[in-house]
Design a protein around this nucleic acid. Sequence first.
DNA 1: TTGAAAGCGCTACCAA
DNA 2: TTGGTAGCGCTTTCAA
Lengths: 343, 343
Amino acid sequence: MSGIHLNDREPTMREVAALAGVSLKTVSRVINQEAGVSSELNERVQNAVRQLNYQPNTTASNLRRADQRTATIGLILDDVSNPFSSVLHRAIEDVASQHRTLVFAGSSGDDPKREEELILALAARRVDGLITVPASRASGELKQLQRLGKPVVFVDRLATIHTADSVTVDNRAGGSAAVRHLAAHGHQRIAFLGDIHDLWTAAERYLGYVEGLAMAGLRLDPSLVRQDVRNMETAEQAVLELLARENAPSALFTAQNLITIGAIHALQRMGRQHQMALIGFDDFLLADLLDPRVSVIAQDPARLGRLAAELLFARLGGDTRPTQQIVLPTRLIARGSGEIPIT
Amino acid sequence: MSGIHLNDREPTMREVAALAGVSLKTVSRVINQEAGVSSELNERVQNAVRQLNYQPNTTASNLRRADQRTATIGLILDDVSNPFSSVLHRAIEDVASQHRTLVFAGSSGDDPKREEELILALAARRVDGLITVPASRASGELKQLQRLGKPVVFVDRLATIHTADSVTVDNRAGGSAAVRHLAAHGHQRIAFLGDIHDLWTAAERYLGYVEGLAMAGLRLDPSLVRQDVRNMETAEQAVLELLARENAPSALFTAQNLITIGAIHALQRMGRQHQMALIGFDDFLLADLLDPRVSVIAQDPARLGRLAAELLFARLGGDTRPTQQIVLPTRLIARGSGEIPIT
DNA sequence: TTGAAAGCGCTACCAA
DNA sequence: TTGGTAGCGCTTTCAA
């Protein structure tokens, strides 16, 4: 059997109208459930629709429609397959589906060029709005979108556009809390491993680290700071190096979920998981089943996503209040790895 | 500052034409990079485009375009936030982006009603094709899509439509291998925990379980079979019950990633993780860092996704070969939990 | 090489 | 309550 099928051409409203013996406009009324169609004509149209298997063409209706809505939004994540991002995605989808809206999802890979491409592609398809985890601090394309009246919501990370709603967590407080918690267990040499330093979250968590050290009265040792750690493998390598050096740290603050996991790989490989204290930013599946159980600064990605989507749809619904900058707290979950005392 | 912005209205081709002092058609030629525009007019148009910040409207161009392409595909997963699904998603996105195509992603929640809604919503937006992890075995909407010439590719799971390409793994062989591996370590009472029994993968893995028992010369004990286990919590509960009964199993075959994780929760809670053998279907992050390390029947979701997307785009490129049913092998990764001998 | 006119499938507006 | 006509932003067709 062939993979490509009889190209029947999709039935149009005009064809439905012809079959039902009514005008085009009457079919339009029935499809859009407008009031003022007699139940008899309604019935006839419905029958014709069924008979022809008619599917309304949203893309055509949108063209003419006054509000120009496509019932479509864009979502730009760093990576749709990252566990944190994908939970965010699901929460947004759930809100969108309540508004009969479909979600274009894309991965920027934290690459400003790819991010720009995505924004342009979404704009070309006339999405009603955009939720984005911005990779770059400033984006002309984004401003362009806003100028056209499309609402933009930042989630998880901030950009320098201050005219958009945002939902983030208090990364700095979380980072600071992690460091102070480690310090409270006697640690003085606490290493920092963070994502690309240009990302807002990575920068904020680093600031939290710096603040936390200061509050604990500890000196910042630049040789214990590893920025631009971009994935699990790099993280594992970085921790192996830290472990190998003389004057090694006694505790790690890993500022992102995949970095934490890479670090655990390194610790287990060296059999040091019970000596080296560890707190990771972001909770993750199975953190509570590892040995030792992993202490984390937890966020609630589902809540972040839901709030971001609700903000977006509020704007689409006509909400013109001042832009909101929602900042959610983080929560330190002490499970064991963060409470390993200094030896 | 207000959250909604000056509604500038998007510039149209007509406006670009007016500014450049050329006809609408000339602008169209430039935008679509058609041959036969003098470099002088080309330049003038480009300038006008930049000056007005013109963004082509794909949705309008599609309406008139002969091939009716929207450069958009649909992707229906069970849950975009499931680690397996989200890796599949990313692989598909990567192929799609090479074809300058955007992906609508949606979660069916393995609910046929929601799946149908999604298909209709995607059809209304005139996606060029659809990749789906089918929740239901048969779908009229899907056939409808195909009749309109839209290619459909099944991935991970099969449905009863045989006129579509598909990419799956040999679930039955994988299930059978898992059971025989456990039997080879002396186990005779091997429990099965599977997803909703109506799902193709769940059914196939169960058949593999049955076959494996038969090949190992073991009797199938229905009281050791738990089907319709729908999430981590249910799985944990089911394992707790199995552990509590007299004549408990000595080994578990957990036929899906979240079920495996739920089972591990239960085992650790009862301190039985070193007595009860366990093999899970699907590999997962951290399986190699747990204690014991978790043996799995691994698939390659990224490869599944890539192949599915390549098949779809081949069809969109005019490939009319007979439909393909690609079946990839699984791989048993012995890490420890599956090699715990009977006590 | 360039442009004018028609029309993609639909909704808005107004008349019957 | 119903329908005709115009037109959304673009591509197609054909003529200049």
